[in-house]
Amino acid sequence: MMIKTIVCDMDGTLFSSENMVGEAYARAVRAFNREFSRRMRIPTTEVIMREIGRPVEEILKIIFPQLKDSERAFIRTLSRKYLVDLIKEDKGLVYPSVKETIAILKQMGYNLKLASNGGTAYINAILDHYHLSPIFGPFIPLNNENLKDKGDVLNLHKSILGLMADEMVMVGDRLQDAQAAEKAGCRFIGVTYGHGTIRELKSAVKIIRSFHELPNAIVTLEKETIVKV
């Protein structure tokens, strides 16, 4: 069965926040310390990046286990605001060849969608600033109800687009992306240039080292499927 829709993760696949996430959290923690008269230590970029790919609430519980939910909510709100500000200041990075490769995939007739644990304001800021909104369409965020993880988002994409599982493929860099593909019953293509490790990609049917390799990986995957049939 031919692939019709390619669903991409954002952080570590299309975009990297590594150059700015440390600054966003630093600003948020400094504001928290002023507001609550605390001396909480600012997490390093390395500590934050280890958790990128998880839902934001989960990241904050790991990095700030000592805080109350209301205190973590304060940091979440401010860190998202500062991330959006930094995106608008062009401090983030769209990976090399992403825009060119997306254009090629569209010309080849593939539908492109997103599945991300990022917040709506954050993802929309990336889509708007880098002019990607017309390509991926409206972002579907997690809501802790019927959309609790990326797997639920993939299943919703399948339902909306009327797809069989084999007609969709997930592309990402972390274990959460692989798990999402498994939950939706679709195939997973792993990328090695993102924030994850090669061990997280062990269930991938294809592994690419640069986003520009994706069209060939998709075509090869389709040919292999035809041969099996």
Rank of each mutant, 00 (worst) to 15 (best):
17 S>G: 14
122 Y>V: 09
180 A>M: 01
164 M>E: 15
43 P>H: 00
37 S>W: 02
67 L>M: 04
90 D>F: 11
152 D>W: 00
195 H>T: 12
207 I>R: 06
100 E>A: 08
8 C>F: 07
112 L>Q: 08
146 N>Q: 14
158 K>I: 07
47 V>E: 15
54 R>F: 12
116 S>V: 01
120 T>M: 08
77 T>Y: 11
89 E>Y: 09
217 A>P: 04
105 L>T: 09
44 T>E: 15
144 N>A: 14
27 R>W: 02
58 E>F: 02
141 P>M: 07
120 T>W: 05
204 A>M: 07
42 I>M: 12
195 H>Q: 09
65 P>Y: 04
55 P>R: 02
71 E>W: 00
111 N>Q: 11
166 D>R: 11
197 T>S: 14
166 D>Y: 05
61 K>R: 14
17 S>Q: 14
110 Y>N: 07
148 K>P: 02
62 I>G: 08
159 S>K: 14
64 F>C: 10
40 M>T: 12
171 V>M: 03
58 E>W: 02
225 T>R: 15
119 G>W: 08
129 H>F: 15
107 Q>W: 04
75 I>N: 12
76 R>K: 15
142 L>E: 07
68 K>M: 09
34 R>M: 05
174 R>V: 00
127 L>N: 07
188 F>T: 05
218 I>C: 09
42 I>N: 08
78 L>R: 10
